[in-house]
Design a protein around this nucleic acid. Structure first.
Lengths: 205, 205
DNA sequence: TAAGACGAACCGACCAGACGGTCGACTTAC
DNA sequence: GTAAGTCGACCGTCTGGTCGGTTCGTCTTA
């Protein structure tokens, strides 16, 4: 029984690995030609598989899109957890920005799918991602509210400020990829966040 | 002859008006269901026309998309011209942000098409829009460089700062539309730009 | 002012092709 | 033996775009 379970687990692991491998290839194609212009046949060719085999791993094209959304959101959420509970909210904001930039640099395909094709997600998949999105947004907002409460940040509309900050970071998916080899995420994060942080901060005011 | 020309012009005007009318309807549908999920038949129904009639006004679906891109970029570029040459670069940046927000509030369909479907533009249409995009970007960058040269702004990477600022403003197309009835562009622009401007500005440093 | 010409606006019916997805069967590998 | 992995061939549907033709208002001409 135990051996069977082990076997099962092993098989599943191999399966998951293959799924991730497929996902990476698909992301590359989505990034090159866009989600809608990438047909299942093209996707299968890109991976080096027959079309039915691709369907063996993912039940639909939409499910592939979902897997990318999920991978991206999970990475960001995990990043938020990783950065202990520094009581310096600026550090947490900077870390979040770096996470986003790194995600863009390492998985431009996932990110582009995430940014441009959330609305293409169907049914429960969309619900699932929406939940994750909202959780992320709330936590970012929490950081900013904490900063205001702490006296680290000046008084401001926390909702709109969060949206502004996130916009600044997320928008980078449009221009950062070709730059990523020359300029690491930390570097770029500092450059784009500098004015924002200076203005948000109260310590030298 | 003059009368004929006048007549001709009049006919063309009616044609253009109709085109704009069609564009507005199409924008509404694109905004509701997305560009790719909106078929020409749906578009025609939305406008209240037969499909061949729609083709009478626009040579292809892609041309409709292009017209929206063009309308949006022209509005933004015109906005940049409008704001005299205030030597206070902060005012010009604020005005640009308000322009973007207003465009989002008044033409969410155009803007969404512009943001998410630039890559779907084909051939020369894409070239044309790219040129406009670059011109816009350069002019924004020029404002920031001018601010640094003037001593109004602190030292910073003008390229990345421009991109950051634009990201902050443009990203609003994802969240501003449902808010637009309650909060006017000027109001929201001030809220999201405040930290950025405070940090960029040197006058109280 | 009536007859005709003409082009813009309009559309029902059609088409070739592409797409997402399925079927049934063969091949490994344990 | 059996279950996962693999695929060639296939299918129904839908899409962008076209064809051939009608209606209608206005200009020309006599």
């Amino acid at each position: 029984m135990a051996r069977q379970a082990a076997k099962k687990r092993q098989t599943t692991e191999a399966h998951d690995e293959k799924r991730n491998d497929i996902l990476r290839h698909c992301a590359a194609l989505f990034d090159r030609v866009g989600y809608h212009k990438a047909s299942m046949q093209m996707l299968a060719d890109e991976v080096g598989l027959g079309k039915p085999t691709l369907y063996h791993y993912f039940p639909s094209k939409n499910a592939i899109l979902f897997a990318m959304h999920d991978a991206h959101m999970s990475a960001l959420l995990a990043g938020l957890d990783g950065e202990g509970d520094s009581d310096e909210p600026l550090d947490r904001l900077r870390a979040a920005c770096i996470d986003i930039l790194r995600q863009i640099a390492e998985h431009p395909g996932y990110v582009r799918a995430f940014m441009d094709h959330y609305e293409d997600l169907e049914g429960e998949m969309r619900d699932h991602i929406r939940t994750q999105r909202n959780a992320y947004l709330q936590r970012m907002r929490g950081i900013i509210e904490q900063g205001i409460a702490n006296g680290h940040f000046r008084q401001c509309d926390p909702g709109l400020t969060t949206l502004g900050f996130l916009g600044m970071c997320n928008w980078a998916y449009k221009w950062y990829p070709p730059l990523a080899k020359r300029r690491p995420p930390e570097d770029v994060a500092d450059a784009i966040c500098q004015p924002f942080f200076e203005g948000l901060s109260l310590k030298n005011g």
